[in-house]
Design a protein around this nucleic acid. Structure first.
Lengths: 214, 214
DNA sequence: ACTAAGAATTCTGCATACAAAATATTACAT
DNA sequence: ATGTAATATTTTGTATGCAGAATTCTTAGT
């Protein structure tokens, strides 16, 4: 039975991202290292290591002498992140083997169709969406690109909890996922890539109004 | 007189990248934290923080229990990185204001033309190339994208020293830069973006043969 | 001489300690 | 009451300490 043998900093990073999804931290909030470390039951050292990693991913900001804080959210930044992820994911799709994509298309379609039925809590649905995109890109041979996408998406997690309580956006996303899967089933990769970009642009539009004005 | 007031971890990170450019570290080499910290005249704490940052950028790898090491180089990874940066830079160019680009085109052209004349050492030339690309993208309003490009390029620094002693690739790069600048001067942004992608693809080809086989 | 077990050493990962910077509080003058 | 200077407190940034894992060295046995 494999006991947990991973660096504390990684576990801490994931725990913080999870709490971020839950909306535990307001954007712009300062982090008190000692208090947070005590709450997590670890020392400041691995906590700081996790904070530095998250700062590198854009989740946190750091200012000399005054520590870390959750980076403030803004429509501008969210738009920027969507532009980036859209470009990276379409690149990943274009680099994938068309035959492989056609093979996983049915599974992608099934997942997308079973999407709104799942009456799970929002947090589970978010994870579900991530897994769908992961499967979509699982055939991309560019490993560095996949890592980078994961990292950039971590920077977007500050925004996910803003969708709380509204299912409409998720249903529309599911419909778009179906469209993408159908294009893949037909072997029309360019159309799928275009639909994927639309998915990000639309998702961005749906979110923008929920982001508080600066 | 503003004295140096930045976190040690950032200064350490830059120093390590500089030494990497000089070819001080062989790919795959394990890092001895205590020895390196002593050499740099700092304690292990900020050094480790810098190492964690570099690991996040792909410069280093970390394995539980056996610390950090410089990630091994490979043709596959270099190709992957080039694909990524090419996509990101062309995106940045497409997002830029065409009027601004036309305005800086002359400066870009002049810099590119003065390129091979500079008989400076290779390391300076590399930095020169970086600055040219920075200027090219300086009109991109997507700040997150610019940060991301910088970060991904840090991950490519493990490869730059492999160009040591050969000016031919740099001269060809200069010619390509001229081409890009000329397209911008004409206001033909799509052509410039295409030339920029070619620049990365060609640069990749030039480099590939120099990367030792795995 | 080669292998394997085990001891000794080295090194990492995490915790704690300390100094300096930033922030909060108090005292006082206006 | 308000602003300000002096002081106390908090908090970060860096250094040091320590336990355990990984590695190297030693040596006994074949």
């Amino acid at each position: 039975m494999g006991i947990e043998r991973r660096p504390l900093r990684e576990q801490i990073r994931e725990e913080l991202l999870l709490r971020l999804d839950r909306g535990d931290f307001a954007a712009g909030t300062d982090i008190n290292e000692a208090a947070l470390a005590a709450e997590l039951g670890v020392s400041r050292t691995p906590l700081r290591e996790a904070l530095i990693t998250l700062a590198g991913e854009g989740v946190l900001e750091s200012n000399q002498g005054r520590g870390f804080r959750f980076a403030p959210v803004s429509r501008k930044e969210f738009r920027e992140l969507c532009e980036i992820v859209a470009a990276l994911e379409t690149l990943a799709l274009r680099l994938s083997d068309p035959a492989y994509l056609r093979r996983v298309a049915p599974e992608l379609l099934a997942l997308a169709r079973g999407f709104p039925d799942a009456v799970a809590e929002r947090q589970v649905i978010e994870r579900h969406d991530d897994e769908w995109h992961d499967l979509l890109l699982s055939g991309c041979p560019n490993e560095r690109l996949l890592d980078l996408i994961t990292s950039v998406k971590a920077g977007m997690r500050r925004y996910t909890h803003l969708l709380a309580g509204d299912d409409a956006p998720l249903e529309r996303a599911a419909a778009e996922h179906c469209r993408i899967a159908e294009h893949l089933a037909e072997g029309d990769l360019p159309a799928a890539a275009e639909a994927l970009r639309d998915n990000w642009v639309n998702g961005m539009e749906r979110m923008l109004s929920r982001i508080p004005a600066p």
